[in-house]
Design a protein around this nucleic acid. Sequence first.
DNA 1: CTCATAAAAATGAATGTTCATTCTCTTTTT
DNA 2: AAAAAGAGAATGAACATTCATTTTTATGAG
Lengths: 233, 233
Amino acid sequence: MFILFFVAVRFALPYGHSCPEDPVAMPRIDTAQRIDRKTAILDAAERCFVRSGFHGTSMSEICAEAGMSPGNLYRYFPSKEAMIEGLCERDFAEVGEGFAALAQAPDIWEAFEALARFHMIEEPRESCQLWVEIMSEATRNPQIGALRKKIDAFIEAKMRFAMDVARDRGQTHPEADLERAVQFLITFADGLMLRRARDTRFDPGPHVALMFTILRSMLLPPATPADDRLKTP
Amino acid sequence: MFILFFVAVRFALPYGHSCPEDPVAMPRIDTAQRIDRKTAILDAAERCFVRSGFHGTSMSEICAEAGMSPGNLYRYFPSKEAMIEGLCERDFAEVGEGFAALAQAPDIWEAFEALARFHMIEEPRESCQLWVEIMSEATRNPQIGALRKKIDAFIEAKMRFAMDVARDRGQTHPEADLERAVQFLITFADGLMLRRARDTRFDPGPHVALMFTILRSMLLPPATPADDRLKTP
DNA sequence: CTCATAAAAATGAATGTTCATTCTCTTTTT
DNA sequence: AAAAAGAGAATGAACATTCATTTTTATGAG
């Protein structure tokens, strides 16, 4: 009786999509081995996506890059959509990690600079390309859009908190406009990601230096007068 | 004899691609009517591309949006690739136009601000989405990458020239680091495009104001000491 | 240790669909 | 009546996903 019900439901699904909860196709338990395999698949997919874009990449391209047959790949991810989402989640989680610890650092400016250097200089250019691809996808895919919103809010909150801590420690001018500094950093960093993604020859080093020069000029001398429109955007 | 040669060449082409030079499928002369029609098609395609991305958009989607049969659409563009390229060219040309006249303006700062307001505020958010999509595409499509390179160089040159003119007119501190200001503007503006593209609720107004506040602080007081690494990037 | 066996992992051909492009035909314009 | 514009069905490749099988791995009894 129950079995018949499940069979009926399964076969009633629209063509071409297996249900992620399907107990046969997608084992519920994720052993360590399984997680490693999924990680390797996401790594391969990432390389493909950077090379050909989310929608220019075919599953067989990913299979070839991962050294795996399609039948097997589908044991780990129920669809291409799920791989894109998984990759975005992973990327967002990695970025989030860096910001999570920011306010706990002994020297907040140092931590900020290290974080910026990591994302803009040490990480390969491919990360920036993927970032832009993800942002473009977030524009039209509501699933990714929601993830994007969460990570953006998280980063902004952590930056604001770190700034507050720095001010409380006397490391900024007491009346500096911290919100404005946060907004500047986000915009400028995004711009750097975009420039590095699109131009092979772009050298981010001096630009990161410029970012902190400007940041210091915003936080150390008294705030520029008037124009407090950015206080609570 | 010659006719036979052309027929042979035509039939030797790989399946599914007609040659853009094909004298039958693509008339050489572009009448005013034809140009209007092409513009309307590009407009329709632009809406589709913003909605679904370059590679998530199908030709039939574009046909529907343009209210036109595929057979007819192919009389105006020989392939989807050509439409993407045509759209990028058009977008780049529009952006380029704005920068071309910059240095001729009576008040360069005013012209700069007007240009920034135009691109970041007056133009609809969809333009930013398209811009990000184009930049993402430029990353992997060499054809688009080459166009991107040209327009980037053009914009940079025009900005630099405008800055020089402003300095010669005594509108900047004589020793201000103009190159640094140009690089700041490019990065910050790119960041604004990316933020506006991805976040429906992003209000660019205050951020454009912040951009010019920072720009003024870079150009009017004496340049910050040391750190001239950005002089010739 | 070794063989039997069942679960898990993996394969690659098959499936049904979608897609870009083309072809044939009709309508409109000149 | 010729040329241009347009329509829409047809074509064949590419694609995401599934299915029938085979191979590998883990397990436990002898």
